[in-house]
């Protein structure tokens, strides 16, 4: 079994209002349950916005801290799910389900190397 990172990319700015978001989160919960039941679910997380991020770089043994995300763009990594799957097709089919629940957000599927 290989593992795949399903990254959720979402536009910067405020999340949708609760009456839009809640049914989506309910569907997401159902999908996670289904992944668990299928033995595919490894880990899933939603992230706080990029404004809460801190970037660290090592400078001669000292940690240099910078406020904000590593890259600024119009979209950011909003959350991710790690699944295990027999092959890319299986991972893509979970990814498609996730994209369906979170439409119109884009889902990037990437194999985990180790």
């Amino acid at each position: 079994m290989k593992q795949y990172l399903l990254s959720i990319y979402q536009p910067d700015g405020n999340p949708p209002p609760p009456d839009v978001l809640e049914p989506i989160m309910a569907e997401l919960g159902k999908l996670n349950d289904e992944m668990k039941a299928a033995g595919a679910w490894v880990f899933a997380a939603g992230l706080h916005p990029p404004s809460t991020a801190t970037v660290i770089r090592d400078k001669d043994g000292d940690a240099l801290l910078t406020d904000g995300p590593f890259t600024e763009g119009k979209e950011h990594l909003g959350g991710f799910t790690i699944v295990q799957a027999a092959d890319l097709d299986e991972a893509l089919s979970w990814g498609s389900r996730l994209a369906g629940v979170l439409a119109p957000l884009a889902i990037e599927v990437r194999p985990i190397a180790w």
């Binding site: 290989k2 799957a85 027999a86 092959d87 890319l88 097709d89 991972a91 599927v109 990437r110 194999p111 190397a113």
Partner: peptide, 14 residues
């Protein structure tokens, strides 16, 4: 190789 693109004929639904 790395992403695990399968080597098989797709299932009927695909």
């Amino acid at each position: 190789r790395d992403a695990g693109i399968p080597y098989r004929v797709p299932r009927d639904e695909e």
